[in-house]
Each structure stands twice: as structure tokens, then as C-alpha cells.
Design a protein around this nucleic acid. Structure first.
Length: 593
RNA sequence: GGCGAGGUAGCUCAGUGGUAGAGCAGGGGACUCAUAAGCCCUUGGUCGUGGGUUCAAUUCCCUCCCUCGCCA
């Protein structure tokens, strides 16, 4: 039975480049998951975009004497470039700065308001009269009222480590221009999480048995211990989504409230772009569809608590306001398989201290599949992991080149030389041949189950173990001896080995799409394994935004063992992977810091 | 302070109520189809500490210690 799978991927904040930690945290696992389900024949919709609003972008714009729009566009373009190069097959990677997203976000806001889950409250906040704007807490500095440290930030003191009430800072000054801010009243809308708490607790408890413990227990434990309270969802800002209420023209929706709505708005935009504007409902209004949210652990509260609260809160009111469908509620997250963090050589990744492996920079020297492989083999699914250049080189050489790449190369070279580029006809297979093919067949179930449960790291380990089994089989049969005595016997071995390789190709394809596609062509297939990525320009009343799209097209192969036929032609193999000089590890390490 | 995750062979990690596994690294061997890759054999661990439940715990419960994260 075909299933609708929504692969919802974290929205990168458009004010910094993406590094390997970001990639393995959410983007890569999402892509692997989407590719797996595409091979399964399920209806996959993978969406995300650039988180384009918020104060840091306006601050960056001020620093660079440009506009928030220019800042977000710059990084957005770089995201599109990177995602194509590492093969992230988004059905739509868009932006929050679109007319469509504005409309969807404002509808969510209005629906929550109509349901009574919003209220307003007035608070005091630092206001810079020189800049004529309210300052976010972290842009105010002053003397800590606890320890007396003179350069405490508005939200936290770096000396005593205490979190501060910004209003209490002594001698406050703006980090922007050093001027002295004053406290002013400002009114904001709040999301009444307290009122939504029972629904959230029920939502989490229903999923407690299959969610990752660090995601669900943390959230649930915290709520049960301390209860939820309202959170402001508007800001005094000019850049962002306007608040759809009269008299609120000077304020915007707070990014944390609005960005998560992107999962819904991107699906709606995708449907519009494909010319089938109702199609997003197959994922969002269909109670049998499953929504998976791939995020880093820093985003857990927003996806395990706040976004579900927004969705549960609107109920069927979103549809009623948006497209006059009051029969359906929006689908709640099925799973939030958040990853932990990736450290780098034992230390926290830090862009500003150059302790980072940047995605685009990496790809100027290495191929995407070795990156995807290493990040998957080492994915921080249950706890923080560590990127070590030495391990990257070792795994590349020992596992990709030696175990898998060499298996492909030794079999196909031998076969191509001895059978003139055609797959030998094996006649009747021997028990040992059938045995290894059965091992592979069972692999499809086992590995498939692991992928499905988002245990990508183990799925890959198990697949590589199977590659090892095929190497073993080959050494036992030793077709290079068989051929001297009995070419038919060698033909059986080689036929079996090629089928095994062709099957392994499918098992590995979610993780290694580029090299599996190459192998796929070498084996003589006409149609590709996957569709193609492409960019597109979309115009609306906010301007133009580039998007990344995916065209599934006419593909072949499903999540099934190989049925490659005897006699079919194939090409002489080219190495799938480059062996790396061990010195590379040291060179790369020396680039850091 | 509250909530949570993790502490298993030199390294990276699996795993289970019945006295521990993989890969890499280390040691030895036979072979040559292959990017000197692959294959076979092998050396490594009182499964953080102290208790408890049990016929039996690394696996369940509690204390404590260490690491990391989240919240106020």
C-alpha cells in the first residue's frame, strides 16, 4: 500500500553558511529518508526553505550596509548551490519571504486567534531612540545585577553564567551603537500554550513508545514538571510577516512562530507550482499520511511542542479560513527524529573561530558521496558524534574504496574481460549462489525496516556487512580459478556476484545517490534510479525567489532484489571512489582554527 | 535548581534477564580477479560506582560519580 510521507526538513537560517554539522543534523538524514521512501514507491513530499526573517538578519544587513532582503538572498543562493551539489532532493526548497508564506502564516495566526488561543500582554522593553526601534535582549549590554560583571548581555551574564532579566541590567547600552536605551511599553500577542497543554501532553504520550527518548522524554518531563506558559509571538520589527490585525502595522510575527509554518506553506506552494494546487492536502489533510520532521536537537522544543501546539490549536479552523474546508484538521507530526550535534576534532563547531568544515568548501576538494557516507556512518542519532579528518580518510579508504568500490570493480572488470561486456548466462544456480542471493533478499527487509524507523546509521552498517558477505562469497568461489577449469562455473559465480552488486546498489542508493547512479548506468540501465533536481524562479508581489525543485520523471528500480538478466550488456567499470592520501587528514586538520 | 541523554575492548559504536559483539587499530597466514583491494586465523573488556529485585543483571529499580544538552 502506498503511503504519503511528508519529509519536513529544518529551515536553515539565512545568515550563515552551512557546515557538516548542519548537514548531518537534519538535511542529510531527511534526504536519505526521502530517497528510501521514493525507492519504496511511496508518495514523498520533501519541503523546506530559507528562514529569511528575524533580528539577526536585520542586524547583519545594518553591519554590511545592505538590506535584510539582500542578506537573505545571498545565503539562500548558496544553500541552493550546496543542496544541489550534495544531492538533497527537495520537492521544494523555498523561502519564508514569499507571498504564499505570508498568507499561510497569517491564516494560522488568525485561526489560532479565532479559537481563542492568542492573547495580548504589555511588557517593558529596551528602546533605542537613536535607532528608533526596540532592541532584542541580546543586543543590550550592561552591568550584571548579580555579579557586577560589566559586559553582561541582556539575556545572560557570561561571567556568572546566570540568565538575566534584561530589564534589570545596570547602565544598559546598545551593542549596536553604544547609545543608552530606555524602557518602553510594548504590546504583543502571546500563544496560550498553557491552554493547549493537555493536547500536547496527549500528543507526546501517544508517540512516546517510538520516538527517540532524548526528544520525547525531555519534552514531556519538562512540561509535566513545570507546565507550559504563554510565549510572545510578535516582535517590534519591520522585517518579517506582518501581524494581520488592524493597528499592528509596526509589528511582525516572531520567527519561531512563523518559520515552522513553512512546512505547511511550502507544501501549498509546491502544489501550486506543479499545477495541481489541491495536492498538498494529500499530506496535510490525510490522517493516514505520516509527517517526519528532521531537525537538530536545538530545535526540539519548537517541533515537539510548539509546532504541534499550533497545529492542534487551529484544528479545522485553518482550512475553514484558508480554503473553506472545515472538514479536515492538519496532520500532526508522526515523528521528530532529531539528531544530536556533531563536534569537530573533539571541540564544538564554531564558524567564527574557523573551527568548522564548511559544506561548499569541502566539495571543492572532495566528492559528495564520501561526505554523505562518513556523515551517515557517524551520524549523531543517539548522542553527539565527532568529525575527525583521520576517520574520514580511513573510512573512505577502507570502507568505500576497499570493501564496496573494489567489490564492484573486481567483479565488473573480470566479467567485462571474460564475457565481452555481457552478463554471463548462469544456467541453473548452485546452492551457494542461491544462498548469497537469499542473504541479500533478506537484507532488503532488514535494511528497509531500519531505514523506515530512521535508524540510518545501523542501516548503513548492515548494508556494508552485506557487501562483506559478497566479498566472502567471491573468495570462496574464486571465479578466477574456476574459469581455468570450467567457464560455466565461473559464469554462475559472476552472474551471482553481479546480481548481488546490483542489489547492494539499491540498498546503498539513499546514502550514496551519485555513485549508485554511476554504477546503475555502468550496469546498462537506461532509466535513472532517481529524478533530477533543478532550480526555478518564482515571482510574487514580494519580488522573485529562486527555488529548488525535484522532477521524479521516468525512473526505474524499486526496493527489490536485482532481476538483471543474463546476456544484457554492461559497460567497463570506472572507479566509484577515489582513494585518499593519509596526509590529507593532517592537511585538513591544519586548516582549522 | 528542574528536565533529559550518555558512560560497554586502544578508538568509534551495537546489543541482550542467563556469565559480552561489530568495524577500525595491533599480531599471524594463504591467495591474486580487483584502486596492494579482498579472504582466513588471532590478541584485547571484572559492560562508570555502590546497593536492591531475581535461581540468574551488563541488561530492571535506587544512590552516587563523570560527560553532554535543554528549561527557568
Amino acid at each position: 500500500m502506498k503511503r504519503n510521507i511528508l519529509v519536513a526538513v529544518a529551515w536553515p537560517y539565512a545568515s550563515a553558511d552551512i557546515h557538516v554539522g548542519n548537514i548531518t543534523g537534519s538535511y542529510l538524514p531527511a534526504d536519505i529518508y526521502a530517497r528510501f521512501h521514493r525507492l519504496q514507491g511511496n508518495e514523498v513530499l520533501m519541503v523546506s526553505g530559507s528562514d529569511s526573517h528575524g533580528t539577526p538578519i536585520t542586524v547583519r544587513a545594518d553591519e554590511e550596509s545592505s538590506t535584510p532582503e539582500e542578506v537573505y538572498q545571498k545565503y539562500h543562493q548558496r544553500f541552493l548551490d550546496l543542496f544541489q551539489k550534495i544531492g538533497l532532493c527537495y520537492d521544494l526548497f523555498t523561502s519564508t519571504h514569499t507571498q504564499n508564506h505570508f498568507r499561510v502564516s497569517q491564516t494560522m495566526f488568525s485561526a489560532l486567534k479565532e479559537k481563542g488561543y492568542l492573547y495580548t500582554e504589555t511588557q517593558k522593553q529596551w528602546y533605542s531612540s537613536s535607532q528608533e526601534r526596540f532592541l532584542p535582549d541580546r543586543y543590550v549590554e550592561g552591568t550584571c545585577y548579580i555579579c557586577g560583571y560589566e559586559s553582561a548581555r541582556g539575556d545572560q551574564c557570561d561571567q556568572c553564567g546566570k540568565l538575566l532579566e534584561a530589564n534589570g541590567l545596570i547602565n544598559p547600552r546598545s551593542k549596536m551603537d553604544g547609545s543608552t536605551p530606555e524602557l518602553r511599553d510594548t504590546e504583543h500577542f502571546y500563544l496560550d500554550l498553557g491552554a493547549l497543554q493537555p493536547q500536547i501532553v496527549e500528543f507526546l504520550k501517544e508517540r512516546e513508545d517510538y520516538w527517540r527518548p532524548n526528544v520525547v522524554r525531555q519534552s514531556l518531563g519538562q512540561i509535566l514538571a513545570e507546565d507550559l506558559h504563554g510565549r510572545a509571538i510578535t516582535r517590534d520589527l519591520k522585517w518579517g510577516v506582518p501581524v494581520p490585525v488592524g493597528g499592528w502595522e509596526e509589528k511582525r510575527l516572531y520567527v519561531w512562530f512563523e518559520a515552522v509554518i513553512g512546512y505547511l506553506s511550502a507544501a501549498i506552494e509546491w502544489a501550486e507550482l506543479t499545477g495541481d494546487p489541491e495536492r498538498w492536502k494529500e499530506w496535510w489533510y490525510n490522517p493516514d499520511s505520516r509527517a517526519y520532521y528532521f531537525i537538530g536537537k536545538d530545535n526540539i522544543p519548537f517541533h515537539a511542542v510548539i509546532w504541534p501546539a499550533e497545529l492542534a490549536g487551529v484544528g479545522n479552523t485553518f482550512g475553514a479560513l484558508f480554503d473553506e474546508d472545515d472538514q479536515h484538521s492538519l496532520v500532526l507530526p508522526y515523528d521528530v527524529p532529531a539528531n544530536e550535534f556533531l563536534n569537530l576534532e573533539g571541540k564544538k563547531i564554531s564558524g567564527s573561530r574557523n573551527w568548522v568544515v564548511d559544506g561548499l568548501d569541502f566539495l571543492t576538494r572532495y566528492d559528495p558521496d564520501p561526505l554523505r557516507y562518513y556523515l551517515t556512518a557517524n551520524m549523531p542519532e543517539t548522542r553527539d558524534a565527532d568529525w575527525e579528518w583521520e576517520e574520514f580518510v580511513t573510512r573512505n579508504n577502507n570502507e568505500l574504496v576497499a570493501t564496496w568500490g573494489n567489490l564492484v570493480n573486481r567483479v565488473l572488470s573480470f566479467a567485462h574481460n571474460q564475457w565481452e561486456g555481457k552478463i554471463p548466462d548462469p544456467g541453473e544456480l548452485r546452492p551457494e549462489d542461491q544462498n548469497i542471493l537469499e542473504v541479500l533478499q533478506e537484507g532488503f527487509e532488514k535494511v528497509g525496516d531500519l531505514y523506515d524507523r530512521v535508524k540510518l546509521r545501523v542501516a548503513l552498517t548492515e548494508t556494508m556487512r552485506l557487501a562483506g558477505e559478497v566479498n566472502k562469497y567471491l573468495d570462496e568461489k574464486a571465479p578466477w580459478f574456476e574459469i581455468k577449469e570450467d567457464k560455466d562455473a565461473a559464469g554462475k559465480s559472476i552472474f551471482t556476484a553481479i546480481r548481488a552488486i546490483d542489489s547492494l546498489k539499491i540498498l546503498l542508493a539513499p546514502v550514496l545517490p551519485f555513485t549508485c547512479e554511476q554504477l546503475h548506468r555502468t550496469l546498462g540501465y537506461d532509466k535513472p534510479l532517481f529524478g533530477e533536481q533543478y532550480t526555478d524562479s518564482v515571482e510574487d508581489n514580494l519580488g522573485t525567489h529562486e527555488v529548488l525543485r525535484y522532477r521524479q520523471g521516468d525512473v526505474c528500480c524499486e526496493w527489490q532484489p536485482s532481476v538483471l538478466a543474463a546476456g544484457s550488456p554492461f559497460h567497463k567499470p570506472q572507479p566509484l571512489f577515489q582513494k585518499l592520501d593519509p596526509e590529507v587528514a593532517e592537511e585538513e586538520y591544519n586548516r582549522l582554527g
